[in-house]
Write a protein that binds this DNA or RNA. Structure first.
Lengths: 122, 122
DNA sequence: CTAAGACCTGACACTGACGTCAGATGCAAG
DNA sequence: CTTGCATCTGACGTCAGTGTCAGGTCTTAG
């Protein structure tokens, strides 16, 4: 498929796909005229990339651990694997942070509801 | 206390505090010479602001819901309260996203461990 | 008094993932 | 053939929170 279809199926912009390629996260075969062509598998790959971006990973970091996706063998030097574990832990810590923030907002919601209740039913 | 102490106690940069003030998230009294002075309470306020930033809220959004912090009464028009609930929900959704990303990484970790085990203990 | 360090304003730099525009080429349909 | 949409490269714009520098004032220890 061409870039437009991949973009539609993966739910990202064409611009983003070209950017991913530029960052070494995605590869494409080119037709004679220079147009990019992709296989169906790339859809899932793009979704994974998006998921990692959404989790706060940078292009560089994603690139560093993609070897673990492409060839989960001895080849991908320990670095990539270590990165992988590191990032998983970082995400866990981030979830903790978010939970604390949510708790703070919950307390605010409760406090405000209390004041409101007092005013609407005196 | 002056800005340097607040920065140290809240764990942020002086630059950030001035920025928060510029964004209407923080206020200060000024000495005759123009230096900012803060009360002890501001430490917690800055920590809350930081927590909200870390949770992905923008300055504008934080400013919009701060009325719920400062005066949890009828005064803070429903808008602020609605924002508050909205943001809490957004954070919940974000936590979901992060969990999914972590799961994806967990699967990768497992897959890679499997391959490694196979090689180290043939 | 004086030197060092904290503080002031104002402004520019940066980062990173994209938007967007320009100008050119490719391609499928009438 | 041509019309119109997809695609190409290349480049500049954006946004937001912060770093950083310049040039000046304030404060405090010795």
């Amino acid at each position: 498929m061409r870039i437009g279809e991949l973009a539609a199926r993966a739910g990202v912009s064409v611009r983003s796909l070209r950017y991913y390629e530029e960052q070494g996260l995605l590869t494409s075969t080119r037709s004679l005229s220079g147009q990019r062509h992709y296989t169906d598998d790339e859809v899932e790959r793009v979704r994974l990339i998006q998921r990692l971006y959404a989790a706060g990973l940078s292009s560089r970091t994603i690139a560093e651990l993609l070897p673990c996706v492409d060839s989960p063998s001895e080849q991908n030097s320990d670095e990539a694997f270590e990165r992988l574990v590191q990032e998983r832990d970082r995400i866990s810590r981030h979830i903790e942070e978010l939970s604390q923030a949510r708790d703070a907002l919950d307390r605010l919601v409760d406090a405000n509801r209390a004041h409101r209740a007092r005013l609407t039913t005196p």
